[in-house]
């Protein structure tokens, strides 16, 4: 039986950039014990000789001709921006003060 502790879930939530309350972390940790047991069944038949399928179509290197086509104007591209400045997305601080 695989299980994820509250702290394991907290670490995953951090990686996924989702703030979570303690209550949410505990609830998810309990649910994951059941869910992981169910999904781990894939290991019963996934033997080494079976190839993996990542995608239903056998596609590779799909290109289109390198021709300039109309695209969004800066105003359209910025139309949903939470904040903007000088025709750019304004984002919160990325690096620390120091």
């Amino acid at each position: 039986m695989t299980s994820l502790s509250r702290d394991d879930v907290a670490k995953l939530a951090g990686l996924a950039r989702i703030e979570m309350s303690d209550e949410e972390l505990v609830a998810l940790s309990n649910e994951f014990t059941v869910i992981l047991d169910a999904v781990a069944r894939v290991q019963e038949v996934a033997s080494a000789d079976v190839e993996a399928t990542s995608h239903p179509l056998p596609l590779r290197n799909v290109f289109r001709p390198d021709v300039v086509a109309p695209s969004l104007t800066p105003a359209e591209a910025l139309s949903g921006a939470p904040a903007q400045e000088e025709q750019r997305f304004r984002v919160p601080q990325i690096l620390g003060e120091e």
């Binding site: 994820l4 879930v9 995953l12 939530a13 990686l15 996924a16 989702i18 979570m20 949410e24 998810l28 649910e31 994951f32 869910i35 999904v39 781990a40 894939v42 290991q43 038949v45 996934a46 033997s47 079976v50 190839e51 993996a52 399928t53 990542s54």
Partner: peptide, 28 residues
Amino acid sequence: KRRIILGTYALSSGYYDAYYGSAQKVRT
């Protein structure tokens, strides 16, 4: 949130083969 966390786990180093990798084989 539940699915993002589950997916993050299934793709994480050390668990990738056991979960996502095995699931891809089942797909075959």
